[in-house]
Amino acid sequence: MGGPEAGQRFEEIYLACYADLLAYIRRRVDSHDDAADALAETFATAWRRLPDVPDGHAARLWLYGVARRVLANGRRTATRRSALVERMGAQLAGWAESAAPPDDDLDAVRAAFGRLYADDREVLALVTWEGLTSDEAAVVLGCSPGAARSRLHRARKRLARELSRAGVDVARYGVRALALAGRKA
């Protein structure tokens, strides 16, 4: 495959997955410039390895896996950050400034989540933020479905413990959270 056909396939994958990948990376990187850089690097990798990108729904999981490695590798390749990527970083910064501030009520949950091991955070985030099943999370994490399930189980238990240790009134909080969610719906 090459030429227009490769371009078309890549474009289709890019358009379908871009927003999800942007969200995935933004949620894991504080610096807007680094987020733009990682996003560009992830899709550039997909372009270079287009034949390896799986079909259909699995493409998104594959891209999450690439993004995960890109982020884990820190400042990735020898490629110079392009002017366009710099503009994207600026746009992300502008977006963040104009976005609504996070809900203060959830600070204790955020703090407890932040105290988890990175692996625990990642499996929980994949399931709740990216909306993956544990089997799909296993694809992203490169482990067996069984391993992902037990990681998820452990992560939930650890978070519950952290919340309890932090004195968060979980039962009451849960009721309040549900009420808020109901009001938003």
Partner: peptide, 23 residues
Amino acid sequence: DRLVERIAPDPGPGLTPLARELL
């Protein structure tokens, strides 16, 4: 899961014209 879901950071601006330029 619901609690973690609610602390999900903002997903960002989505597919902007700059995203098209990056493509």
